[in-house]
């Protein structure tokens, strides 16, 4: 396990206090999930969860004001295909993984499929469409509620809720870790950073924003450990400690935090590089996602 951040505790505390104010059980849930993650990986319970393929039913809530935000079914399907390639390690661009880390690439045995039954058991294509009068949404969860111009989630124990909308401030997407409140569980993605066609725009037009956000939804952390120094890690042993996010399309190796000669694993889905530059989950990250599916997300296993 990584040590707690050694500095700037006040900021972390501030964020934490805010979460605690709104959701008193968040701290306990997170601590419990962390303990479970460690224990279940040590005992092999986590790894056992994907002995067979796990299929996660997905509902895509399209929330739009302008026509272009009401993305096509083809664009949605292209995103589901990307998820299945990336989590199945059948993405052709995994050839970009440096030789030293090729051995860490493997099939996570997690599949995503648009829901075929709605919460009432009626046939559905797994897509809801909601016209809103809001020109954009922030990262405040308002897109997740009909009362604030968005769309309500489907039950989180049966579906992965994926909201697609216009996000303000240049934001591409955001997620929620396991253990958070049910009415906001899921991930939100900018309509032009979703899928590989239609409105999708370079350099975020290969569907990797959703891969990254669903990584968070399955309890993955950023590979730099969320402090802008070397003081904390991502709780995964095979991803080198890194100082901060990498952007764009870096060249190998990029060394920080004494992590030479190979440097940052910037081609990991949990870094901040362009879609074309992120191509892998590591073995250790997959095990951590397995632990989420053995514990807080066990309804899908």
């Amino acid at each position: 396990m990584s040590p707690a951040p050694r500095r700037r505790r006040c900021g972390a505390m501030q964020v934490h206090e805010r979460l605690l104010e709104t959701h008193p059980s968040f701290r306990q849930n997170q601590a419990r999930i962390d303990q479970f993650t460690e224990r279940s990986i040590a005992s092999g319970v986590a790894q056992g969860v994907t002995r067979k393929l796990i299929t996660i039913p997905v509902v895509v809530h399209v929330v739009y004001k302008r026509d272009r935000e009401n993305i096509s079914k083809a664009q949605i399907r292209s995103q589901i295909s990307v998820l299945n390639r990336d989590f199945g390690a059948t993405n052709p661009d995994k050839s970009k993984v440096p030789a030293v880390w090729k051995g860490l690439v493997r099939n996570a045995k997690i599949k995503f499929a648009l829901a075929t039954k709605d919460p009432k058991g009626k046939k559905t294509d797994g897509v809801t469409r909601t016209k809103t009068n809001r020109s954009s949404f922030g990262a405040d969860d308002s897109v997740k509620s009909a009362s604030s111009g968005g769309a309500n989630p489907w039950p989180r124990n049966r579906y992965l809720n994926l909201w697609v909308c216009n996000l303000g401030g240049g934001l591409l997407g955001y997620a929620q870790f396991p253990g958070g409140p049910g009415r906001t569980d899921g991930v939100v993605i900018l309509y032009s950073a979703f899928g590989t066609q239609g409105e999708a725009k370079a350099p975020f037009n290969l569907g990797r924003t959703a891969t990254h956000e669903i990584g968070h939804w399955l309890n993955l952390r950023h590979i730099w450990g969320d402090t802008m120094d070397c003081s904390s890690g991502d709780r995964v042993a095979d991803t080198p400690n890194a100082a901060g996010p990498n952007y764009g399309k870096p060249t190998f190796p990029h060394i920080t935090c004494n992590n030479g000669p190979n440097g940052d694993m910037f081609m990991n889905y949990m870094d901040y590089v362009d879609d074309a530059a992120m191509v892998m989950f590591s073995d250790g990250q997959i095990t951590r996602m397995n632990a989420a599916l053995a514990g807080p997300r066990s309804h899908f296993a």
């Binding site: 900021g11 964020v15 240049g170 934001l171 591409l172 997407g173 955001y174 997620a175 929620q176 870790f177 900018l190 032009s192 950073a193 975020f204 924003t209 990254h212 956000e213 968070h216 952390r221 950023h222 969320d226 802008m228 996010p245 952007y247 901040y272």
Partner: peptide, 24 residues
Amino acid sequence: PSRGRVAFELRPDGTFVESGIGPT
């Protein structure tokens, strides 16, 4: 657009407000 950007405002009175990149 970006996956995340750090920003900070330096005020003449010696205080600052910043917006860091959160874990999700």
